[in-house]
Computed example of a mutant assay.
Amino acid sequence: MSFTKLTVSALALAAVSATAAAARDEIRIVGSSTVFPYTQAVAEQFSNNTGAPSPIVESTGTGGGMQIFCGGIGEQHADITGASRAMKASEYELCQQNGVTDISEALIGFDGLSLAVSRANENDWDLTLSEIYQALGAQVPVDGEWVDNPYTKWSEINPDLPDVEILAYGPPPTSGTRDAFVELAMHAGCEELPYVQEAGHDGDWIEENCSRMRTDGPFVEAGENDNLIVQRLEADPNAMGIFGYSFLYENLDKLKGVKINGVEPTTDTIADKSYPISRPLYFYVKNAHRGVIPNLNEFLEEYMSDDALAEDGYLAERGLVALAEDRREELQDAVLNGKSMEAPE
């Protein structure tokens, strides 16, 4: 399969718009801890194939990556940022204010938001979204009142659940994984509560009252390093971790997924949407850095290759749920030709 490359005139315009950018040897990439292992795999493949310096890939979290990426144009600024959610309108505006006015958006595939426990945990965990919300939400309904969360054990929420302390390690507010978990698990779980349904509360009420994670101990912010969560789960088999499926996939020798509504997180259940909490994964590239930062265009070609992105590609082997062929071809065309994204609504 062949793709149209950026024309010489387009590259010249990019170079002019990035006059501050010198010939930095390595491509610099920041962003989501969930997208990190995929980008790192592409970086290694690119370096092995070409002999070029391997791009520097940093796990800064989605929000932190956007702040770095949108800081400006030039060699001191990152070329690409990974994101486990779409760029926000406020982030796009920050980019525009700092001269990052030409950005290509790449939706590379899908990922499930996984709850996981150590393989030493002997329980067969199967939770509903409402049980997840009641365990981790800052406020919950108790005896018809909306109160600070009193639950300390899973069995207090549902007597059929294990009689163990609630303890979940999860991402900080700067993480796109946290944003997605709040929207897809916490809001959806809150919406399922009889208290909320009987009161007829709408989406605005849910967003205002069901977005906060509890801060009294059962939920612990574990930072952007998912490896630390694995270490903590191994130290306490009753603890749970919250992260993208790709990370669970890479640690299946140590961890097992928690079922939600009877469905395990797998590439198949994420792809067919039977697993209830999944999200798209992105990266964003500064088009002004193309043709200025050495090897950036070639790296993007590797990232957009069928070898990387197809259903049997090496990223799928690491847990990425691939796009359908027609969507993948649209993505490849847009990224390789430097199509500018539209402003988010």
Score class of each variant (00 low, 15 high):
I166N: 00
W154I: 03
Y151P: 04
F219T: 03
T215A: 07
E192C: 02
I157L: 04
D163A: 06
E192L: 06
P162R: 08
L161W: 00
L228Q: 09
L228C: 07
E191I: 05
G176A: 07
D202V: 09
T128K: 08
A138H: 08
E208C: 06
I229C: 01
P162S: 11
G189N: 15
C210T: 03
T177S: 08
A168E: 03
T101W: 05
P218H: 12
E224V: 08
F181Y: 12
D216F: 05
G109C: 00
A185S: 11
I103C: 09
E207Y: 13
G112S: 10
D216L: 07
V147K: 02
P173Y: 08
P194D: 13
S211F: 08
A168P: 02
L228P: 03
E192Q: 10
D216Y: 11
V140Y: 03
P171S: 12
F110L: 14
V147S: 03
V142Y: 07
C210P: 04
A199G: 12
L127F: 03
N158S: 08
V140F: 05
T128H: 06
P162F: 14
E208Q: 15
L167H: 05
D124G: 15
T177D: 04
A120I: 15
L184I: 15
D111V: 07
W146I: 01
R119E: 13
A199C: 15
S104K: 00
Y169P: 03
A135V: 00
L136M: 14
E221G: 15
A199V: 14
Y133C: 00
G200T: 13
A135W: 01
P150H: 14
I132L: 13
E208L: 10
F219W: 10
G109Y: 01
E105L: 07
M213P: 07
F219M: 05
D111M: 12
D216I: 08
N158A: 14
L161E: 01
A106C: 00
R178N: 05
G223T: 15
S175E: 09
D160I: 14
R119G: 12
